[in-house]
Amino acid sequence: MKVIPFKVPVTQAESVTVNEDILPFFYGHVHRHKEMQLTLILKGEGTLIVGNYTQAFKPGDMYIIGANQPHIFRSDDSYYREVAVDNVHAIHIFIEHENTLQFLSNLPEMEFIKKLMDNTLPGLQVPDEYLAHASRMFLKVNRVSGFKRLITFIKLVRYLTEEVKHYKSLSTGHDNMPFSGPEDNRMNQIYEYTIQHYSENITLERIAAVVHITPHAFCKYFKKHTRKTYKHFLNEVRINEACKKIINGDFDCISSIAYATGFNSPINFNKVFKKMTDKSPSEYIKEYKHNWDNAVRMLKEPA
């Protein structure tokens, strides 16, 4: 899919740029920029794509995305159908990688900055148990400005690098494959068709016909450009959608989620869900309810 070069609106007066988005839906294009990005989701659900990796996102999540890493926070389709000015709310911190971070990392006292630069290139998600404290610091960066913002940001980075353990990596383990020209359109067609029809029986013959090639050629083409099989990608999309249904409370029972997301049986759904998330659907529901209660309580607390 096409990756758009994105220009972060920066000010010459500050090294750390903060954008607060209160919008009908998140920016709807895969893009990249030279700045490292930290994002805190306060409102809104959808699918996060970072390079070749996809997963559902929800309120309370915090992500670190490396410089020049293609990504998109794609809002659920419902946000486009039911438009409101404040459907989504997120805060993004941007800091220039080559100059500002590099300069700070050269200071002996700032060795942890280099650790952040080295470890965040593929993208990371902050684990749930650290979100309360990290989010309070994050919100404070948004409230202050000038030198206070830089110092507060440095304190946040120090916490993220020295205190937070066991990050979730947003990486497939492979380098990203850049697309250009006709490949932009072809991969975008595959992606969009899958998003629109994931609940249906998408055979190889059916998806290959979307881009007018044979099933055998399609398998080779998709694996070459994504480093994964189409079946694996389709299962990722389906499990992401299942997670979003759980997040939104849009289900009657686990079996209803299975059939609504394109699985032919609850047994197969449970197997794939466990493989993708390391949790059973029932464990995920229980954990989400617990984390949601904590996130709401944390966001109401003064920073």
Rank of each mutant, 00 (worst) to 15 (best):
K2W: 04
I4H: 09
F6T: 13
F6W: 08
F6K: 09
K7N: 11
P9V: 05
T11W: 14
E14G: 06
S15L: 15
T17E: 13
T17F: 09
N19H: 15
I22P: 06
G28E: 15
H29K: 11
H29D: 06
V30M: 07
V30H: 01
H31T: 08
H33K: 05
E35V: 01
M36T: 11
Q37A: 10
E45S: 14
L48P: 00
V50S: 02
F57Q: 03
N68M: 11
N68I: 03
F73H: 08
F73I: 09
F73M: 08
R74F: 00
S78I: 08
N87D: 15
H92M: 02
H92D: 00
I93P: 01
N99V: 12
T100V: 14
F103I: 15
S105H: 08
L107P: 08
L107V: 13
L121C: 04
P127R: 06
E129A: 03
L131K: 07
R136Y: 06
V141Q: 02
N142M: 05
R143Y: 07
G146Y: 05
G146N: 08
R149A: 12
F153N: 03
I154K: 10
K155F: 06
K155A: 11
L156V: 02
V157A: 11
Y159E: 14
L160Y: 07
L160P: 13
E162Q: 06
V164Q: 13
H166T: 14
H166D: 15
T172V: 11
N176F: 12
S180D: 09
P182N: 07
N188L: 11
Q189V: 12
Y191A: 12
T203C: 13
T203E: 15
A208P: 05
V211S: 11
I213T: 02
T214R: 01
P215R: 04
F218Y: 08
F218I: 07
C219Y: 01
Y221P: 09
T226G: 04
R227N: 07
K228C: 06
T229Y: 05
K244G: 01
I246G: 02
I247Y: 04
G249I: 13
D250H: 03
F251D: 09
D252F: 13
S255D: 07
I257G: 03
Y259N: 12
A260F: 09
F263A: 13
N268D: 08
N270T: 11
K275W: 04
M276A: 13
M276P: 05
S282M: 13
K289L: 11
A295E: 14
E301N: 10
P302M: 10
